[in-house]
Design a protein around this nucleic acid. Structure first.
Length: 324
DNA sequence: GATTCGTGGCC
DNA sequence: TGGCCAAGAAT
């Protein structure tokens, strides 16, 4: 694991030196048996030593750069996001730059990241930021939430990581870390529960900047150590206090977690159709789309869906292109 | 609350 | 090999 060479955007105050009670109530974290300041220092120290050197975490990363990364990282691994993010930031360094382009260009440059509606929504967010917010990414959580493609998680993440605010940031990594360390379960429930929000709220450091770094630190712990499969518990700073570890790492017992089938689905057909549109730099005749999938009924349904979503634009009878 | 929505890599 | 998973949002 590479040592972190990034200066944290919002460095935490020296954790171990923080006087008890200055940071948060001195009560022990539920089921962790650690005073909150100790828990915070433990995770923050681990983060300082182990965080990945990601470009959207550098001190000079703009709020827009953070927002673009958060859109791309929705359901998509960091490794695949990195090169596309670099391309986007070079081409569209500000929201206004993206807003000035056709939405289809965003879809094209999205490449094979998947879930291309995110590209359309990010373009929509850029337009809204440009037209309604003076070209600056809003700092306010509620205003962020009003942007297309920005939900509970992304609003909290941008407010926290780009602006150093204190928010509960609950993503799949954080949920898994808390499920294990606090609740003693291998995996969290399928949907976020009120209990999870209470736990996350109770553990959040009191100071804004510390809370912001805590959020990214817990996420990083989930991404690098407390992983879904094959967690590296021997490398975990919470090894001795983790409720799941102390319980003997009992296997998941809840309802079967829904698998994501893909072969033969409309999603696969949509993907194939859109790939043709992306690679063509102009209009595409029907015949080229027909070639990607044998079932005409499913093909037509997929294409209709893409048009309905605004990802594809009919030009004339039997001719399509990315939206302008 | 359950579904839909891409793509690729890994154990 | 193939099921499972990856910084979710919208409906």
């Amino acid at each position: 694991m590479a040592a972190n060479t990034v200066t944290p955007a919002f460095p935490a105050p020296a954790g171990p030196a923080a006087p008890p009670g200055a940071d948060a109530p001195a009560e022990a974290a539920p089921k962790l048996g650690l005073p909150l300041p100790v828990l915070h220092a433990t995770v923050l120290d681990w983060y300082a030593a182990n965080a990945r050197d990601l470009p959207w975490r550098t001190p000079d990363a703009s709020p827009w750069a953070v927002m673009v990364s958060e859109f791309m990282l929705q359901q998509t691994p960091v490794k695949r996001v990195l090169p596309v993010w670099e391309t986007w930031m070079e081409r569209w360094p500000t929201p206004a730059d993206l807003a000035a382009e056709a939405p289809g260009e965003a879809v094209r440059m999205w490449g094979r990241l998947g879930y291309p509606r995110r590209a359309l929504r990010l373009h929509g967010a850029a337009v809204a930021i440009t037209e309604k917010h003076g070209g600056e990414v809003p700092e306010d959580h509620a205003t962020l939430l009003s942007l297309p493609g920005v939900g509970e998680y992304t609003a909290a993440a941008v407010a926290s990581f780009a602006f150093g605010q204190r928010h509960v940031v609950l993503d799949t990594n954080v949920r898994r870390v808390f499920a294990r360390a606090v609740t003693g379960a291998e995996y969290p429930a399928q949907a976020t529960t009120a209990a999870e929000r209470r736990t996350a709220t109770a553990l959040l450091p009191a100071a804004d900047r510390t809370a912001a770094t805590w959020a990214v630190a817990v996420m990083e712990l989930g991404a690098l150590v407390c992983t879904a499969r094959g967690p590296e518990c021997g490398d975990c700073p919470l090894f001795t206090s983790c409720a799941w570890q102390r319980a003997g790492r009992p296997p998941y017992e809840g309802p079967a977690r829904r698998g994501q089938t893909y072969e033969g689905t409309d999603r696969q057909v949509r993907g194939k159709l859109l790939a043709v549109l992306r690679e063509a730099h102009d209009e595409v005749p029907q015949a080229r789309l027909d070639a990607v999938w044998p079932d005409a009924v499913q093909r037509a349904r997929a294409l209709d869906g893409l048009v309905a979503d605004g990802l594809v634009e009919p030009v004339e009878q039997g001719v399509y292109r990315l939206p302008r």
